[in-house]
Design a protein around this nucleic acid. Structure first.
Lengths: 127, 127
DNA sequence: CGTTTCGTACTAATTATTTAGTATGCGACC
DNA sequence: GGTCGCATACTAAATAATTAGTACGAAACG
């Protein structure tokens, strides 16, 4: 077990995405999902999933035939730490420049910003 | 020469950041800047800068004694493609969820959003 | 039962990234 | 002229990430 959790690599993330979607999955299920997109070996997926377990992203339990894996931490938390790592690495920790880029690149519209603003407001009011 | 430009790795980005700041730099200048933060060899920096040149991120010209390097593409463009790559990889291309995460994680405040909104508005008005 | 199928553990090859050593040349300096 | 400091090219070691092969056991199949 590793207390620190290094951020997900590209392929690790791909696997996590599949599992987040399926909520719970065997190696075979993940393997078959990935296979639809690209050539990959069953054991490759297995190796990655074991690594993810060691890193603390997945936990497994004995199922009917094979181990059944599931996320060991909430998706939001994982994504959030990836965002944080990215903001630190690229923008030295400040998020505003990122936002500016997103807007200038038209990834976000004024409308998007509005909606977020609203939800902040209501969240603050709420319970 | 490589037409496609693979996105910057972590260490490559560190070097680009230094050069963006200095605008123009020799290997030695970058080396000394990095040295303030961590142990690193001169030739390591040189190798990285050569790679960056091959990848099309830097160009060099003969200076007094040594080559002088400078960005081969605007910083904004580079950062933007990193952002794009990240959004694609983590959020399957949609930026809103990223924004939500930034807000929920208090990286961005309502005020930040307001300011951006304003700048969008004025940008749209102006020429 | 012998054989095929599936799952896992263990090992390891491949590729990408990061780091740095060595040889060599050039100009300043003594 | 010989030596020192600096720059570069070339080479390559160390590390991290990705991919997959092999052996072996258990269940399923006929």
């Amino acid at each position: 077990m590793r207390p620190a959790k290094p951020t997900l690599t590209e392929q690790e993330l791909e696997i996590m995405k599949v599992i987040w979607k399926l909520e719970t999955a065997t190696v075979r299920q993940v393997y078959e999902t990935l296979l639809e997109r690209r050539r990959i070996a069953y054991t490759t997926v297995m190796t990655m999933m074991n690594i993810l377990e060691q890193k603390g992203y997945l936990k497994k339990q004995q199922g009917e035939k094979a181990y059944v894996y599931q996320p060991a931490q909430p998706q939001k938390q994982v994504i959030r730490s990836m965002v944080r790592e990215f903001v630190n690495r690229v923008f030295n920790g400040s998020a505003e420049p990122l936002l500016v880029h997103l807007v200038e690149d038209r990834c976000l519209t004024e409308k998007d910003l509005d909606e977020i603003r609203k939800s902040i407001k209501s969240a603050r009011k709420g319970p």
